[in-house]
Design a binder for these strands. Structure first.
Lengths: 110, 110
DNA sequence: TGTTTATATTGCAATATTACGATATAAAAT
DNA sequence: ATTTTATATCGTAATATTGCAATATAAACA
C-alpha cells in the first residue's frame, strides 16, 4: 500500500488529481502567485521570495513543471519559469464545470 | 523533515493548498464528480462506485470534509454527503484570478 | 432483544512527500 | 583558466499518505 491506485480511475480523473496535487503545497501556491505578480520571468528570485532552501525550491518547481502548470526556458545562465496556460485552463475548467452544475440544482439536498 | 512548513506562508496560501491537496487524488476527484452527477445524496453508493474498500472511501470522504469541499448530514442510518459550495468557490476563485491576470499579460515571456 | 445495515475508527505495512546539506553542472564574468 | 552565479541532482532523515483487515458504533428492522 501507500501507492495511489491510478489504474482504476479514468485518465481525466488522474490528470485532474495530478494538477490539484501539484498545487497542494503552500510553497507551490506561492510560486504560482509570484509568477503571476512579476512582469519579468527572471526566476532566481523565487528562491529569495520563499522561506525554503534552493534545493527545496528547485524540487517544487520541478513538480509544478511535471504537472504541466509551469514551463521553464533556459536563458543563458538562469532559467525563465512561467505559467503554462493549458494546464491551468484544464483544472480551471473542472471547477467551472462543477459550479455550472451546482447552479442548476441548488438547495436540492443537505 | 517531511512536514510542510506552513508557518512561513500566508493563511490564504495555506488554505488554497489544503483545498488543492484534498483534490490531489483520483478517488477524491471521482467522489466530487459522483456527488455532482447524482440527484439524490444517498451516499452508501459511493463505496460501490469506487474500486476501493469501505474504510478507504470513508477516509477519503473525511479528507474532503476536513478541507471544506463536502459536507455530510446524518439521515437516520446513513449519511448524506454533498458538495460544500463555499469551499469550492474559494478554490475556483483562485483559478479565475490567475486566468484574469494572464489575459492581460499574454505573450510577454517564455 | 438480536440481527442487519451503514459508516467510522484503529492499527499497521507499503509507499510518497518534504526538506536540506553536499555535490554536480554549466554558463558568465573576471 | 579560474571563479562566480544559477540551477539541478543525490542522499538521507523525518513525516505524511494510501489502503485494507479487523473492529467499533449506532440506527433500523425483525
Amino acid at each position: 500500500m501507500g501507492a495511489t491506485k491510478t489504474d482504476h480511475f479514468t485518465d481525466n480523473q488522474n490528470q485532474l488529481a495530478i494538477l490539484a496535487k501539484a498545487l497542494g503545497h503552500p510553497a507551490r501556491i506561492a510560486i504560482m502567485e509570484y509568477l503571476l505578480k512579476v512582469d519579468t520571468c527572471i526566476c532566481g528570485d523565487i528562491v529569495n521570495e520563499l522561506p525554503l532552501s534552493q534545493p527545496t525550491v528547485s524540487q517544487h518547481l520541478k513538480e509544478l513543471k511535471n504537472a504541466g502548470l509551469i514551463k521553464g526556458s533556459i536563458d543563458g545562465n538562469s532559467i525563465c519559469y512561467c505559467i503554462n496556460e493549458p494546464g491551468l485552463e484544464k483544472i480551471k475548467g473542472f471547477f467551472e464545470h462543477i459550479s455550472a452544475h451546482l447552479e442548476k440544482k441548488r438547495n436540492e439536498c443537505c
